[in-house]
């Protein structure tokens, strides 16, 4: 009798049943190809949308970082600034290690540069009697310095220096770009999240349908002593597989779209938009997308399997 009672408490799903779960799940996906296809597509589309947002945000962020990497502060003098004032600031800059990489740009050099950059409108400038460009210092700063509190103090000191009219730095603009990246990421996550939940419910319905189809068989399984875990395992795996396949499909579609946009982009537009298709997602984010599919699939099947 002890033997029989011990049998009541043995673990009900040995590792070998994993094979059974997978084989059965694949078979069921194949049996109900059409509804499986719908479920997988739903997941793929939701995650593709998340992926598009992620990709845009990724590239924007990349660009922002590149700009920030060679950040430059421009210190413009007033047109009536004296040589002594300029010399004083030069001495000050030389004394600060963080501002040591600087270069003086004369009025003539500024005008020359403008003519080179904007050749089409340069005759407009040549009509002017006087050179409108003030002299300036260009200071190269490191991103770490920009983000340190010392940066604002140093800039305030430069701004207060006599003869200085305007200190220009792209900090605000970069900060705004960073915020935009966050917003895009969030928008993608919200839109994708809603769609993924919808997709999870589609999976839940597909699996509920399969379960209905297999109702008789499930009853037989119970009668011959199958545990609920053994009965429901394949359905859970079915959902997880559908979700994961959907996630993988989304990554594949995203990469195809990425390559397509990159290769068909007109050179004239590539200046404007090219930076948006600079890099593909890093592997961590690819893994996140696929895992999102897995999670949605698991959630969907869990929903339908949970109820008796």
């Amino acid at each position: 009798m002890a033997r029989e009672f011990n049998r009541l408490n043995e673990p009900d799903v040995p590792s070998s049943t994993a094979t059974y779960f997978f084989r059965e799940a694949l078979r069921r996906i194949w049996t109900s190809k059409r509804s499986s296809f719908v479920a997988i597509s739903m997941i793929a589309i939701s995650l593709l949308i998340v992926g598009i947002f992620m990709l845009i945000a990724e590239n924007l962020e990349h660009t922002v970082e590149q700009w920030q990497g060679r950040s430059r502060v421009n210190v413009y003098f007033a047109s009536d600034a004296t040589g002594a004032q300029i010399a004083a600031l030069r001495a000050h800059l030389a004394s600060r290690s963080q501002l040591a990489k600087h270069r003086f740009v004369t009025r003539e050099e500024a005008l020359k540069r403008f003519r080179e950059y904007f050749a089409s409108v340069s005759n407009l400038v040549s009509q002017l009697d006087e050179n409108p460009f003030p002299p300036s210092f260009e200071i190269e700063v490191t991103p770490e310095f920009i983000q340190s509190p010392a940066f604002n103090q140093e800039m305030a000191a430069v701004r207060a220096s006599p003869g200085v009219e305007y200190v220009q730095f792209d900090w605000d603009w970069l900060a705004r770009m960073r915020r935009l990246v966050d917003v895009i990421n969030l928008a993608g996550l919200i839109a994708g999240g809603i769609l993924a939940i919808a997709a999870a419910f589609t999976i839940a319905n597909v699996i509920r349908l399969t379960m209905m189809l297999y109702r008789e068989e499930i009853e037989i399984m119970r009668l011959v002593g199958a545990t609920e875990r053994l009965i429901r395992g394949p359905f859970l795996v079915e959902g997880i597989l559908q979700g994961t396949l959907g996630g993988a499909l989304a990554v594949g579609l995203l990469y195809a779209a990425f390559l397509a946009v990159r290769n068909t982009l007109d050179p004239s537009q590539s200046l404007l938009f090219g930076f948006l298709v600079g890099t593909f997602l890093p592997w961590q984010k690819i893994a996140m997308l696929v895992a999102g599919g897995t999670l949605a699939g698991w959630f969907g099947s869990w929903l339908s399997v949970r109820e008796r």
């Binding site: 009900d12 297999y214 037989i220 002593g225 199958a226």
Partner: peptide, 22 residues
């Protein structure tokens, strides 16, 4: 939750066979 383990000790030939057709 003990039902499955109990049933595993019984071999039953059902009147309607109850084979899994799939």
């Amino acid at each position: 939750r003990h039902l499955p383990f109990f049933r595993r000790e019984i071999g039953m030939v059902f009147q309607d066979f109850k084979l899994i057709e799939r």
